[in-house]
Computed example of a mutant assay.
Amino acid sequence: MDDRLVELLRHFELGARVFQAGPLCHSAHFDAADGLGHIHVLQQGILRIDSPGQPTLLLDEPGLFFFMNPTVHRLLPQAPDVTMVCASLEFGAGLRNPLARALPEVVLIRLRELPTLNMTLQLLFREAAERHCGRQAILDRLIEVVFIQVLRDLMDQQRLQVGLLAGLAEPRLAKALNALHAEPARNWSLEELAATAGMSRARFATTFRETVGTTPGGYLAEWRVGVAQSLLRQGKPVQLVSDVVGYGSASALARAFRAQIGLSPTEWLKRHHLDRSDGAATASA
């Protein structure tokens, strides 16, 4: 099967920053003001996870959980031996990343359910316990690898029933999604996508909507805007971006932006730069 994550990772930059590696002696609170997600790996101990509006979670064995989107939450050690690795997570933050928008608020997996992660986690925990040169960079890269492996497992084990990963877990839909991701500028018809998936038009439309959670046309429009945001953030001119994602003109791209996010590309870019500047100022204060 083709790499189902390659286009997501190419267009929506993944970055992690480990800020906790070792014993967690006191409760830790996280807010959503920084616009980042968070990933936490419990190596040992018992941990309570509180998040407003969500049931309290109690993790009493090694496990991993992450908030893909900015989410207020609190970690409360329930024993003196809690040891964990925590990192902020940015995966196309501020962009219409279809994966971030489709995942549950919190994803929790017990490590015994993920034997394929053993080798990476051993490296992560060993690096966390030692103090060698380059430790921060290695921890950051390893937690990114862990996250990608988790996404792969969510697909391979079909742990999610609705959303992008559920669609990529279905072999026929994955063919259509991969093709759509690779060629956003193409004027895809429902018949072409159904043929790519090896399904009838009606069956494809129904299966796609029930599995991914939106229509093929709706998903394509969201993907195009997300890719356009990524390219604009890289400094690409609006006209070039509109061609790359299949709108053909700056005005057509502007209409698509307004329909989905209520701003023109130029307005969104200004707000995006302002938000990032405010975030940097807050972090340095």
Rank of each mutant, 00 (worst) to 15 (best):
F147L: 13
R258L: 05
L220M: 10
G63R: 08
D81V: 06
Q20Y: 07
Q157R: 14
K236G: 00
C25M: 15
L154V: 04
L42V: 01
F204D: 05
L165Q: 06
P80E: 13
C25L: 15
D31G: 09
V41H: 06
R159N: 12
H29G: 07
H38F: 07
L220H: 12
A87L: 00
V18F: 12
D50Y: 10
L180F: 03
L64S: 06
P23G: 01
E210A: 12
E222N: 14
S242V: 01
G134I: 04
T211P: 05
A176E: 08
A280E: 13
G35M: 01
T214A: 00
S189G: 14
E183H: 14
A285H: 14
A102R: 11
R17H: 15
D3P: 00
P80F: 13
A174Q: 15
G246N: 11
I138C: 11
A174S: 13
Q158G: 09
L42C: 06
W223A: 01
L99G: 09
L9I: 04
L154C: 11
A281K: 15
T56E: 05
A228P: 02
M155E: 10
F65P: 05
G37C: 02
Q122C: 08
Q149G: 14
D156S: 13
L164Y: 03
R152G: 12
E183R: 14
